[in-house]
Amino acid sequence: MSNDPIENALEWLKKGHNVAIATVVKTWGSAPRKAGSQLAIREDGLMVGSVSGGCVEGDVVENALEIINTPSSVKLLQYGITNDTAWEVGLACGGDIKIRIDTMKSNG
């Protein structure tokens, strides 16, 4: 299977799944993936692509799943540097990123 997020998202939609696409819309500092990088998420949590080096994907998927059954919604997320002492989601590399999630329904 191709590892292109858009191609996978379309395949999933055709098969009747609800789908979300996360896009990096801004980066500051040493962010791991450049702006424009995308992650496609299926309603069962399967994902293709990336928006970081693996640091925040888990949280992005969780956020996407919260809205994935409400098609045509948008959510903006922002992540900063990880504080080593806290159990929080963040970027170990010292960057900041802003992410947009779009949801779409299967019969759209």
Binding site: I6, E7, A9, L10, L13, K14, I21, S72, D102, M104, K105, S106, N107, G108
Partner: peptide
């Protein structure tokens, strides 16, 4: 974003 847009993206990429 919707299915039609994704199809358009792939069409233009191709």
């Amino acid at each position: 974003m919707d299915k039609a847009l994704l199809e358009k993206i792939i069409e233009n990429k191709n």
